[in-house]
Design a protein around this nucleic acid. Structure first.
Lengths: 195, 195
DNA sequence: TCATATTTGAAACGTTTGTTTCAAATAATA
DNA sequence: TATTATTTGAAACAAACGTTTCAAATATGA
């Protein structure tokens, strides 16, 4: 047993973002129920009391890590959209980017999708968060589709809201399926062919 | 505490299918890690030792309940397909049936989808089972699409295998999304419009 | 330099986890 | 009817669970 003394200052040593990033990856991989407090201690390198002090209990930490994940995803989304040359290309770029990720071996699925399955029907607060996330993403898609329709990129006889919800659903499907099937490029093109 | 004596015969009292059905519903709803042995004792009405005697440990019971779920789903699939008047209508009927179910409040998602998220990246045996299930369903879809193409119901310039995997992915998406969005009829029609 | 505020590490808390044990119970067989 | 094979119920198991406690440690502000 190594009992070498370690410095213990008053101010926080760790970077909150770093810790949250590691915690999120773990929850993402193993789910809420599959992750133990000991796992969290191991992955953060923090003491139990520090975790409770900083983040509250396990459930609160999970909620914060959900928000962290959502933020990260949103940043990626915004970046992808802002780099695209048109609304339709923004959507295509998003889907193809995910498809490329999957092919490159990034087959962890989507944390929110996994969370929907695990806790969506049990925890009302989690469910509310997921519903809100869905609404927000569908709203983004809708705006892009409307923009594309004005530009003539997408046929105007399709209802933007329906198309947006279809894209959301297809995205969920892609990410779940990616866990057992790495080659989804053709499927992605099928999805985009609807636009 | 009710200690009224209960008959204890040598032969098994309970119906194995009944027990499995209840167990499966519970695993479906709460996931593997979310379901405790006590939960299983409660839902089955059996004693712990009877469960271990009959099904082995928790993991083996889960595997058997996965197979039970798969069997049930396959029966439903076969029934739907055999009642349809053409290959394309078989596929449409499957998707619309699920969409109707969702609208009717049956929003439990798909047990295999949930399982994919929870254990797909951890347990190799579960993963193999899920991959095999996917392959089987995609093969069914492929056969139906090829049949439909021969009948001229579906355009022949589309690759049956790709279309089949698209349908599989779309199905996963529908069932995950159903947990947070009950109205998926329009989305379902969008999916089917690809055929 | 001293008092204060806060974090840290280690230990312990009571529950719940999955699993095993074993005597009592009982239907079937001889 | 006596024996046998098997199931049942209740208790107990060690291990892991999430959480709390608290003295020791230390950077900060007076």
């Amino acid at each position: 047993m190594d009992t070498s003394s370690i410095e213990m200052p008053k101010t926080v040593l760790f970077d909150r973002e770093d810790v949250l990033s590691n915690v999120t990856d773990l929850f993402w991989q193993k789910g809420y129920n599959g992750t133990s407090m000991q796992d969290l201690v191991d992955v953060t390198g923090l003491n139990r009391s520090s975790i409770y002090n900083t983040f509250g209990d396990k459930f609160q930490l999970f909620e914060e890590s959900l928000r962290f994940y959502q933020m990260t995803q949103n940043d990626l989304l915004r970046k992808t959209f802002s780099q695209a040359k048109s609304p339709k290309k923004a959507i295509m770029s998003l889907f193809r980017g995910i498809s490329d990720d999957i092919k490159a071996g990034n087959q962890k699925g989507c944390m929110l999708t996994a969370c929907t399955s695990e806790l969506g029907s049990e925890q009302p607060q989690i469910r509310d968060f997921l519903v809100e996330n869905k609404d927000r993403l569908v709203a983004s898609f809708t705006a892009l589709i409307e923009g594309a329709q004005q530009l003539g990129e997408i046929s105007s006889d399709k209802e933007p809201g329906t198309l947006a919800l279809f894209l959301f659903s297809a995205l969920q499907g892609l990410r779940v399926t990616s866990m057992i099937e790495p080659d989804l490029e053709d499927v992605t093109e099928q999805i985009l062919s609807i636009l």
